[in-house]
Measured scan of single mutants.
Amino acid sequence: EEERTFTNEEEARKAKKEAEKRGLRVTVTKDGTTWRVRIG
């Protein structure tokens, strides 16, 4: 499991799409101005 943080919503969405392409489970949460993308 890996967690990545982004300040840019577009980049967070891109990371989510890429992980889904690899067949991984992805959770995206917004924490104030930060987007957290949890993969795995």
Results as ranks from 00 to 15, higher is better:
Glu1Gln: 10
Glu10Cys: 08
Asn8Thr: 14
Glu3Thr: 10
Thr29His: 09
Lys17Ser: 13
Gly40His: 15
Arg25Gln: 11
Lys30Asn: 10
Thr5Arg: 07
Thr7Asn: 11
Glu20Asp: 04
Val28Pro: 00
Thr7Gly: 07
Arg25Ile: 12
Phe6Leu: 02
Lys21Arg: 12
Leu24Ile: 05
Arg36Pro: 03
Val37Arg: 00
Lys17Tyr: 14
Glu18Asp: 11
Arg13Trp: 15
Thr33Ser: 12
Gly23Lys: 02
Glu18Tyr: 06
Glu3Met: 09
Thr5Gln: 07
Arg13Met: 15
Trp35Phe: 05
Ala15Ser: 04
Arg22Ile: 07
Arg22Trp: 08
Ala12Trp: 04
Lys16Arg: 08
Thr34Phe: 12
Glu20Cys: 05
Thr29Glu: 09
Gly23Ser: 03
Val28Leu: 14
Trp35Thr: 02
Arg4Pro: 03
Arg25Asp: 06
Asp31Asn: 07
Thr5Ile: 14
Ile39Ala: 03
Asn8Phe: 05
Val37Trp: 01
Lys30Arg: 11
Arg4Glu: 07
Leu24Gln: 07
Glu3Asn: 06
Arg4Ala: 08
Thr5His: 09
Val26Trp: 01
Gly32Ser: 03
Glu2Leu: 13
Asn8Gln: 05
Arg38Thr: 14
Ala15Met: 08
Lys16Trp: 14
Thr33Leu: 11
Lys17Trp: 14
Val37Asp: 02
Arg36Lys: 12
Arg25Met: 10
Thr5Asn: 06
Gly23Arg: 02
Thr33Asp: 15
Thr27Ala: 04
Gly23Phe: 03
Asp31Phe: 07
Arg4His: 13
Thr27Ile: 10
Arg4Met: 14
Glu1Lys: 08
Glu3Ile: 14
Lys14Thr: 10
Glu1Thr: 12
Gly23Met: 02
Gly32Ala: 04
Asp31Ile: 13
Ala15Arg: 03
Lys17Asn: 12
Lys16Leu: 10
Ala19Pro: 01
Glu11Asn: 05
Ala19Tyr: 13
Ala15Gln: 03
Gly23Asn: 04
Arg36Ala: 05
Thr5Val: 14
Glu10Gly: 09
Ile39Asn: 01
Lys16Glu: 13
Arg36Gln: 06
Arg25Ala: 09
Gly40Gln: 14
Glu1Arg: 09
Trp35Ala: 01
Arg25Tyr: 11
Lys16His: 07
Ile39Met: 06
Glu2Trp: 15
Trp35Asp: 01
Gly23Leu: 02
Arg36His: 10
Gly40Trp: 15
Trp35Met: 02
Glu11Thr: 04
Val26Phe: 02
Val37Pro: 02
Glu18Met: 07
Ala12Lys: 00
Arg25Phe: 11
Thr34Pro: 01
Glu2His: 11
Lys21Phe: 09
Thr34Tyr: 12
Asp31Met: 08
Arg38Pro: 01
Gly32Glu: 05
Phe6His: 01
Glu18Phe: 06
Asp31Lys: 05
Asp31Arg: 05
Thr5Gly: 03
Asp31His: 09
Ala12Cys: 07
Gly40Ile: 15
Ala15Trp: 15
Thr27Gln: 07
Gly23Trp: 02
Trp35Gln: 01
Ala15Asp: 02
Asp31Val: 12
Trp35Ile: 05
Phe6Pro: 01
Arg22Gly: 05
Glu2Tyr: 15
Phe6Arg: 00
Glu10Ala: 12
Arg36Trp: 08
Gly23Ile: 01
Thr34Glu: 09
Arg13Ile: 15
Ala12Pro: 00
Lys16Ala: 15
Arg36Gly: 02
Arg25Thr: 11
Lys21Gln: 12
Thr5Asp: 05
Lys14Tyr: 10
Glu18Thr: 05
Glu10Met: 11
Lys17Thr: 12
Glu9Ile: 09
Lys17Ile: 14
Lys30Ala: 07
Arg22Tyr: 07
Glu11Ser: 06
Gly40Asn: 12
Lys21Asp: 14
Val28Lys: 00
Ala12Gly: 01
Asn8Pro: 00
Thr7Lys: 07
Val28Phe: 05
Thr27Asn: 05
Val28Gln: 01
Thr27Leu: 06
Glu10Gln: 10
Arg36Asn: 06
Val28His: 00
Glu3Trp: 12
Glu18Ile: 06
Phe6Val: 02
Gly32Arg: 02
Glu10Asp: 11
Lys17Asp: 14
Thr29Val: 12
Lys30Gly: 06
Arg13Gly: 06
